[in-house]
């Protein structure tokens, strides 16, 4: 890894990447929605060779006692060994839990869903929104792919039929009513390698870099979630520079959601 690290560092000093990108250029991104027949809201996101499948499931349950009139949002990520030789079977590792929680933070703190509109009967019944993230191929930057997949799946999701008197969800029957999505938070992740900053790290860049910073922002420039990872550090100026770039880069990605 030290050989590859030195090579990538040298390239970045020349403002270059090994795949021909510029430091702050994202790989090609594609979003498809409605890809899982069983799910009332789903998306497949590709960022370069990274691919993530996201599916929404809705259920009816009890609200939390401290938020009796709000629906419940649950985000889970499974780093299945199908997607990478680095993933193992077994209970979720810290990486999977971090991925789920960072994705969750962007959606939740960006107020992507109007959770009050998910209330069916205050204190008793609310919609529970499960978002499951499954990477199908990891070539780096799963965080941005998951976050984009989650918001794309939510944006297109509809409620299943619910019979209130029988308290029964018909999971196979989808209504035409869309989920109350009111904001589109977008996550962008930056790496730092030997002092150079860059956007959208590949798997090889992730293995070599010192640290990463992921920032979720809204269209109006509001910053709604951040996560630093890796053993390295960032200076204050670097963080401010990344924040500005995150706001700018997320606007381009948001356009893909239409």
């Amino acid at each position: 890894m030290k050989v590859i690290r030195n090579y990538l560092a040298e390239l970045l000093k020349m403002q270059k990447r090994e795949d021909g990108r510029e430091p702050f250029q994202c790989r090609e991104v594609s979003i498809e929605t409605g890809v899982i027949a069983r799910s009332p809201g789903s998306a497949r996101v590709k960022i370069g060779d990274t691919e993530v499948l996201v599916g929404v499931k809705l259920d009816v349950g009890e609200p939390f006692p401290d938020t009796p009139n709000e629906g419940v949002l649950i985000i889970n990520a499974e780093l299945i060994p199908l997607a990478s030789p680095d993933f193992e079977t077994g209970p979720p590792k810290p990486e999977a839990i971090e991925l789920a929680r960072v994705t969750d933070r962007g959606i939740r703190e960006g107020h992507a869903i109007d959770v009050e509109k998910l209330c069916i009967k205050k204190g008793e019944k609310v919609w529970m929104v499960n978002i499951d993230v499954y990477p199908m191929n990891d070539d780096g930057n799963l965080i941005d792919a998951s976050a984009l997949g989650a918001i794309a799946a939510l944006k297109t999701a509809v409620f299943p039929k619910y019979d209130e008197s029988a308290d029964k969800v018909e999971y196979k029957e989808f209504t035409k009513t869309k989920l109350p999505v009111k904001a589109l938070p977008i996550m962008t992740t930056f790496g730092k390698l030997a002092g150079s900053l860059f956007l959208d790290p590949t798997h090889r860049e992730e293995k070599a870099f010192d640290s990463r910073l992921s920032i979720s922002t809204l269209d109006d420039g509001t910053v709604c979630a951040m996560q630093k990872g890796g053993f390295g550090t960032f200076t204050k100026d670097e963080v401010l520079q990344i924040m500005g770039l995150a706001i700018q880069k997320s606007k381009e990605l948001r356009k893909l959601l239409k």
Binding site: Y7, E10, L11, M14, K16, R17, E18, D19, G20
Partner: peptide
């Protein structure tokens, strides 16, 4: 040269 290496790799 690093940038030439990248070309060869691609």
């Amino acid at each position: 040269q690093a940038d030439k290496q990248a070309v060869v790799a691609r």
